[in-house]
């Protein structure tokens, strides 16, 4: 496996301020790299979608009081790595078992479509869907697929009868 440099590794409690903090650090790091504006923005773009997704899930789980603090911190993770050519984003959080099928279908659908079809799907969703207070109209995954231009890898690992561990792996190529 190629040598990957870790740009950001974060595990633990996700608050809205966490998003800000991680983005600021990443922006500084990416500004020092010889990469195109397009790639830099794509990495940040996907990172925001991942972090906001974790944050939304984290809130639900905190309210649910299902995990103790130690367990909770272990289950939330965001990692950004690169190997000069490519960027790798890993995003993880617990998910309710009953929601797995919906999420899996969304990712499988996004993975099965080409750029033009993804754009069409995105357009139809923003034209027709309602957005909740914190966003979330199923646009995130489509946006990630569009910006990544690679298949989205994912896994679900059962934690208990209620929750599974949901991990997303996304790759962005630096096309200079």
């Amino acid at each position: 496996m190629e040598d990957r440099q870790v740009i950001i590794y974060y595990e633990g409690c996700f608050k809205f301020e966490t998003i800000e903090k991680l983005l600021t650090e990443t922006k500084q790091n990416l500004n020092d790299k010889e990469i195109s504006v397009k790639t830099k923005k794509r990495v940040l773009n996907i990172m925001v979608e991942c972090l906001e997704n974790i944050y939304k899930h984290a809130e639900k789980v905190i309210n649910n009081n299902h995990f103790n603090k130690e367990e909770y911190n272990k289950f939330y993770k965001f990692v950004l790595e690169n190997n000069n050519q490519d960027f790798y984003l890993t995003s993880a959080n617990p998910i309710l078992n009953k929601n797995i099928e919906t999420v899996r279908n969304k990712i499988d659908q996004a993975n099965s479509l080409g750029k033009a079809e993804l754009k069409e799907l995105y357009a139809s969703k923003i034209n027709n869907s309602m957005i909740s207070e914190r966003g979330g109209a199923g646009l995130g995954i489509i946006d990630i697929a569009l910006k990544s231009e690679n298949k989205i890898n994912y896994s679900f690992t059962k934690i208990d009868d209620l929750f599974s561990y949901y991990e997303l792996k996304i790759k962005v190529n630096d096309n200079k």
Partner: peptide, 12 residues
């Protein structure tokens, strides 16, 4: 400079 996917609906 950048907008997230949930903002895109409102920008539209």
């Amino acid at each position: 400079e950048y907008f997230n996917s949930s903002s895109s609906k409102f920008i539209l």
